[in-house]
């Protein structure tokens, strides 16, 4: 299996058998995983922050960094592989968004990331069918092409599937 690593802000798409996408140590970041059940194409975006107003320049260089620019860029990248949301069959899953329990709410970036991702997805008429988010877990996620099988691991825990 060939593993394509997605760093923070990277997005990747593949439809090749024997390939998988991986986002390591998500922390409060969120991996948005889109699988096209018609074509077997999978895409993933490793989002760091909810809102691109933090750095419009970064959003231009690396749209995948922010929820409000990353999902549009991911769906656009998947079009090249023949995946189009207008034709249906898109399955979305979310992983990551670890949360710090801050009663002042300031440090709850994981929760804000997940919320921002969902709000963008809703604009496209999409929503996650499954999610493994929140908690005090530093997840690494791997998604297999064609099957769309998702494996999650974290130090100190047995790996699991979503």
């Amino acid at each position: 299996m060939k593993t394509i690593l997605l760093g923070v802000g990277d997005l990747g798409v593949t439809n090749k058998p024997g390939e998988e996408l991986q986002a390591q140590s998500l922390g409060a970041g969120v991996a948005v995983i889109v699988a096209d059940s018609r074509t077997g194409c999978i895409g993933m975006d490793h989002i760091a922050l909810p809102d691109s107003t933090v750095s419009l320049r970064r959003a231009e260089e690396k749209p995948g960094y922010f929820a409000d620019t990353g999902i549009a860029a991911l769906l656009e990248a998947m079009k090249v592989f023949g995946s189009n949301i207008s034709e249906g069959g898109m399955i979305v899953k979310l992983v990551g968004g670890a949360n710090v329990m801050d009663p002042n709410s300031t440090f709850n970036i994981g929760r804000r990331n997940v919320q921002a991702v969902k709000e963008v997805l809703w604009k496209y008429g999409l929503g996650p069918v499954a999610e493994d988010v929140g908690g005090r877990v530093n997840r690494t996620v791997t998604v297999e092409s064609i099957t769309g099988k998702i494996r999650i691991s974290a130090p100190g825990r047995e790996a699991w599937e979503l």
Binding site: V8, Q24, S25, L26, G27, A28, G29, A48, A98, V100, M101, D102, P103, N104, F107, I109, G110, R136, V137, N138, P155, G156, R157
Partner: peptide, 18 residues
């Protein structure tokens, strides 16, 4: 730790002092 750069199993498993 929120950026995913921890030291392993303990990453994020602490309490924030409000």
């Amino acid at each position: 730790m929120m950026g995913g750069t921890g030291t392993g199993a303990d990453t994020l498993m602490y309490r924030i002092d409000e």
